[in-house]
């Protein structure tokens, strides 16, 4: 019991939870935008890798940190455009196209890394985003170190939650995106372009996914490793269902997952001698499956998710 109390009472733990949640926030927002428009984007895992590699490489080659963020987003947008071409324009299976993009983006990233830096043995490092101590607030006991000593990259993720929620629920664009994921015919009958909306949503959503990857190499760590994304993209796909396609709940889901993960790391340090480490590694994933079972059975999927739209199709 004391161990648990120690963990939960440490500001360090909460800071880690938010840090671990950050890439998931980007990823889950990106997946949410795609799916709200009716397109499942299983390319997310590969787009994470591409974002991680592209952002890091840009900074390494001298583009500057924010330049790296932009390059990562562009890399994601590019793969998003490919996915949109295959699924929205050609109407191919979203599952197949998404998995293909994950394989392609992952391999292309490793290939680029290897060919650009053929001679390095240990991964080169960059100067990553540094935690910003918000004056005054970061001095607060407990909350200060947990919340107000994060990097700007984390703040960007939190701000994007608000932006996505605002656009989705308060603007005509958000209205159209929610409509096109429920019934594309409603959008076409009102004179809007189903394809335009879907392509836009997939491209923007994929750019956000890539930022999730970039956070790993440019804020959480300072180098690019093989296998560093390690299923974070897939977790986001599950978190979207958990969040019922709502940005606020998506943030909550990402934070919960982050907390689980931070918790297992600390628990492992405390009682790792007694229980094998793999059990702890499993913990967050087990809990997310459990959460999904409880929540997803009643999930209100966007009705047009996975359905391609052909103009002038006979009903």
């Amino acid at each position: 019991m004391d161990i648990l109390l120690d963990i939960f009472a440490s500001a360090n733990f909460w800071a880690a939870a938010i840090r671990i949640a950050t890439p998931l926030i980007f990823g889950v927002l990106g997946a949410l935008i795609c799916e709200r428009a009716g397109v499942l984007n299983l390319g997310i895992e590969g787009i994470f890798v591409a974002g991680a590699m592209a952002g890091w490489l840009a900074v390494y080659l001298g583009a500057g940190l924010w330049g790296g963020v932009l390059i990562a987003a562009l890399a994601g947008a590019m793969f998003g455009l490919l996915h949109a071409f295959l699924t929205v324009i050609l109407g191919l299976s979203q599952h197949v196209s998404g998995i293909g993009i994950t394989l392609l983006a992952t391999s292309a990233s490793y290939f680029t890394y290897r060919t650009t830096l053929p001679d390095v043995s240990s991964p080169p490092r960059i100067a990553p985003f540094q935690p910003i101590a918000v004056p005054g607030l970061s001095e607060l006991p407990f909350i200060g170190p947990a919340l107000f000593q994060q990097t700007l990259f984390t703040w960007l993720a939190l701000a994007l939650v608000a932006v996505v929620a605002f656009v989705l629920y308060r603007t005509p664009l958000g209205l159209a995106i929610r409509a096109v994921g429920d019934n594309p015919a409603s959008v076409e009958a009102q004179g809007l372009s189903v394809r335009g909306l879907r392509i836009g949503a997939v491209v923007i959503g994929s750019a956000l996914m890539a930022l999730g990857g970039a956070f790993l190499t440019m804020s959480a760590f300072d180098a690019f490793f093989f296998g560093m994304v390690n299923g974070r993209g897939w977790i986001c796909i599950a978190l979207v269902v958990f969040a019922s396609w709502q940005p606020g709940k998506a943030l909550l889901g990402a934070l919960l997952f982050g907390a689980f993960d931070a918790f297992q790391i600390r628990l492992q340090a405390e009682i790792g001698q007694v229980v094998p480490g793999q059990v702890f590694l499993m913990l967050p994933y087990l809990l997310s499956i459990l959460a999904l079972v409880l929540v997803a059975r009643k999930a209100d999927y966007p009705r047009a998710l996975l359905q391609p739209w052909t103009k002038g199709q006979r009903h």
């Binding site: 603007t171 005509p172 664009l173 209205l175 159209a176 409509a179 409603s186 959008v187 009102q190 809007l192």
Partner: peptide, 11 residues
């Protein structure tokens, strides 16, 4: 309302 207001506006 859908489609009657500019997409990039507050509505």
């Amino acid at each position: 309302r859908l489609g009657t207001e500019p997409l990039l506006s507050l509505g």
